[in-house]
């Protein structure tokens, strides 16, 4: 009996928590099919008529931004996962002079806050002629993601049984082939997690694209939505529809990589 109550308590706790996590989605959805009067004067009402045209209007404005965000977030994720995967393997398995100092150089940046970087990064992006291009976002996102993910990757590579890699050596596989055909499949969950994480961070980033992406047709959804909120004052219905649309790609991505995402970290002890 006692045991059942405890078990029930745990489930109740998690279900309530889950519902609380869902509330913004629910509010967004119900506001997105109403017009301003219905929202302001009848916030809870769902009596209709439903204004599905909000979605048509929102789609027109939001769809180009989604593409921009996908390119920037996807590009960052792919490059980052490749770079940090390589480095994780290099630092975790290979031997070379200066390995430790180099690793510490990267690792230390994890402890160093990035706030000082905004303005000089902006100037650097400008001098490198990157402003207003997707690369302004991609390259800096990859750079910013390295310290943490190199650290994680190295932990995971070190956690793999040594014999595995040794046997590959006997086969005479080149180091890169060992990495590609042995390490990558083994590390797939954490690699996927890393890619998803970088993707989501770029997808949600606001300040950096705000200052670097100036062209109207290259704006990602974050700055784009904030912009729509100021240009469509009071049009809450279409705005919310826009928010809903902007969330869809992440939901799709999540359902594709869900298993890796929720289990990606279980293979190693990530800690300090």
């Amino acid at each position: 009996m006692m045991k059942n109550t405890a078990e029930f308590g745990k489930h109740l706790f998690l279900i309530v928590l889950g519902l609380l996590l869902l509330y913004p989605l629910i509010l967004m959805l119900q506001m997105s099919v109403k017009n301003t009067e219905q929202i302001v004067y009848d916030f809870f009402g769902l009596s209709g008529p439903f204004h599905l045209e909000n979605y048509a209007r929102a789609w027109e404005e939001v769809s180009p931004m989604i593409w921009n965000s996908v390119v920037m977030a996807g590009g960052s994720a792919m490059i980052s996962v490749f770079v940090s995967g390589l480095a994780g393997y290099g630092f975790g398995k290979l031997k070379f002079v200066g390995k430790e100092p180099l690793y510490w150089l990267i690792f230390a940046k994890m402890m160093l806050p990035g706030v000082l970087n905004l303005i000089p990064s902006f100037v650097l992006a400008w001098k490198l002629n990157l402003l207003n291009s997707y690369f302004a976002v991609i390259l800096f996102a990859v750079g910013g993601a390295q310290p943490f993910w190199v650290f994680v990757m190295r932990t995971f590579v070190q956690g793999q049984p040594k014999e595995l890699f040794e046997s590959a050596k006997v086969d005479g596989a080149g180091e890169f082939r060992t990495f590609l055909f042995l390490a990558v499949p083994l590390l797939r969950p954490v690699l996927t997690l890393s890619a998803l994480n970088v993707f989501i961070n770029v997808w949600n980033d606001y300040i950096w694209p705000l200052v670097t992406i100036q062209s109207f047709d290259k704006r990602p959804i974050t700055t784009g939505l904030a912009y729509l909120a100021t240009t469509h004052v009071g049009e809450y219905g279409p705005l919310m529809a826009g928010y809903v649309i902007a969330s869809v790609p992440l939901v799709i991505l999540f359902s594709l990589g869900m298993r890796q995402f929720v289990q990606g970290l279980t293979g190693g002890a990530v800690k300090l």
Partner: peptide, 12 residues
């Protein structure tokens, strides 16, 4: 003006 600040700096 925020937008212009950055656009001018980058000659965009």
């Amino acid at each position: 003006t925020k937008l212009l600040d950055t656009q001018f700096v980058s000659h965009e």
